[in-house]
């Protein structure tokens, strides 16, 4: 007689459900450590910021958590804060536009090269992308400094003395330098995905080169334009390192102002409310992006 190894009972719907539940439990357990970690060290801190933004600064520079109010948000209407806010938005906007104008033709150029050339060109974009941000901004401090290479060059060219360092121009320069790769890479990804035969089809249908760009390439690469703009605009708005190194006293930006509120002025509620505003801008921008059909940042 042959030995029966086991006595399988009939499979019941219960069994299937149990198996599915076990699988789901496994996934949950795997996610759990990260879930807990982020809950503790990300979500909780975020809630604390919100709480602080409604708190009151006391006479000793400390913060009273009792007696909630909108004082800190009201202060955002102060002319000092408002100027800083507008200046930050303005500089971030200029930075974004300059990056877009430089990066679009560049990304298109890369996307239309042979694969070997294309990869090489991308590698040389990745290097600054990965390089230390602080150091890259510092390099401009050296270049633009007193008697630095830039002023020597402008003297040789007979342009006279140039004073760029510690002006908004230097800040925008530093921001563009720092964030240009963030514009190039999503634009490249978007353009590279487009079937270039569509450009041929539009030319076949009597579009000029410019019209093909306007009507076909640009609309199809819009997800890249939006992603790149968000990736440049949001960090520019909150930039702290660049204005500290390249900007002057008169170019305080949102990021620096927030830091000052915490490290020197000790007005934590105002700092917290501003951080919250910054966060809200970022969330809104991301939502817009996903609404417009973008999928990856």
């Amino acid at each position: 007689m042959t030995q029966v190894l086991s006595h399988p009972e009939e499979v019941t719907p219960e069994f299937e459900k149990d198996a599915a539940r076990a699988q789901s439990r496994r996934g949950f357990l795997m996610a759990l450590p990260t879930f807990v970690y982020l809950g503790l060290f990300f979500v909780l801190p975020f809630l604390i910021v919100i709480v602080y933004s409604f708190a009151t600064r006391n006479r000793f520079g400390g913060t009273d958590l009792s007696g909630w109010n909108f004082e800190a948000y009201r202060k955002l209407g102060d002319s000092v804060v408002r100027d800083i806010l507008f200046r930050s938005i303005w500089l971030a906007l200029i930075t974004t536009i300059i990056c877009l104008v430089l990066a679009y033709p560049f990304a298109y150029f890369i996307a239309t090269r042979r694969p070997a050339v294309r990869n090489l060109m991308l590698v040389f974009v990745m290097i600054p992308f990965w390089s230390n941000f602080l150091v890259r901004n510092y390099a401009w401090r050296v270049l633009l400094g007193n008697d630095g290479p830039v002023s020597q060059l402008s003297e040789v060219l007979g342009l006279g003395e140039t004073r760029v360092l510690f002006t908004p121009v230097a800040v925008v320069l530093g921001l563009v330098y720092g964030f240009l790769p963030f514009m190039i890479l999503p634009l490249y990804a978007a353009i590279e995905r487009i079937d270039l035969r569509l450009m041929e089809a539009s030319r076949d249908l009597y579009a000029s080169g410019w019209q093909s760009f306007r009507r076909v390439l640009l609309p199809l690469s819009m997800p890249g334009v939006i992603a790149g703009s968000i990736l440049v605009f949001v960090p520019s708005l909150g930039a702290y390192v660049t204005p500290e190194i390249l900007g002057g006293a008169k170019t305080t930006l949102l990021g620096s102002y927030i830091v000052t509120q915490f490290l020197t002025a000790r007005n934590w509620p105002v700092g917290a409310s501003l951080s919250f505003v910054l966060m809200a801008v970022m969330l809104a921008a991301t939502l817009v992006y996903f609404r417009k059909g973008g999928r990856t940042l």
């Binding site: 990300f42 949001v234 909150g238 919250f276 991301t286």
Partner: peptide, 17 residues
């Protein structure tokens, strides 16, 4: 979220926490 949050905001969050 941690990818897209501006680092100043993240810094404030951690400080207060």
């Amino acid at each position: 979220l941690p990818i897209i949050i501006p680092d100043v905001t993240m810094a404030v969050m951690m400080l207060l926490f």
